[in-house]
Amino acid sequence: MVNRVSALEGHDTDCRFGINDAIAVHVREIPNLVLFQAAAWVDSMSAVESAISSSAGTNFAPGPVTAATGTNGSLLRIEPMKWWLYGITAPELPEETGVTLDLSHSRTHVRISGPQATTLLNRNLPLDLSEQHFPVNSVASSSLHHVGITLWRSEHGYELFIPRGFAVSVWEVLMQSAAQFDV
């Protein structure tokens, strides 16, 4: 099998910024994304919810703009009738229940963590990311340097899903901004 080639091929995709050993922000690509979409119909929401939560190993399917993580993978509610399944493939759904789609190659997954992660993101991202307004498992569609992205705050940090074609552009902007945390 041919190997997957990342959109960030040729870049150092694991970068820590900070003074000496004190890491202010850690930006890295999580390669080989596995991402599926499951979409329901108005009258089949609960059937899709139960199918995907059993795939992910969660007790429930998350509501709008939130996420839930189970034993197998995570679920992100990205639209009123659509979920993303992160880290797992989608279950088979009969067409009267819903439809699924493989989006694993459509996004580049970048994780930003560390004490200055919010500061770095807010250089370009116009969302209030304070704990009060954007706690863990919040999900948002927003934009970063003119590029529409999906943002999920996981237990590991901020998970950015960048449309693959824009990944290099966004990565370079993030690197330029992050360099100041070395000073």
């Binding site: 959109a7 040729g10 190659h105 340097h145 590029v147 552009s169 966004v170 370079e172």
Partner: peptide, 18 residues
């Protein structure tokens, strides 16, 4: 801001760009 030079607008690259 950062919207200058190569980042004046975000560049969109195909997976075969390189």
């Amino acid at each position: 801001g950062q919207s200058v030079g190569a980042h004046f607008r975000p560049l969109r690259r195909t997976p075969m760009h390189n």
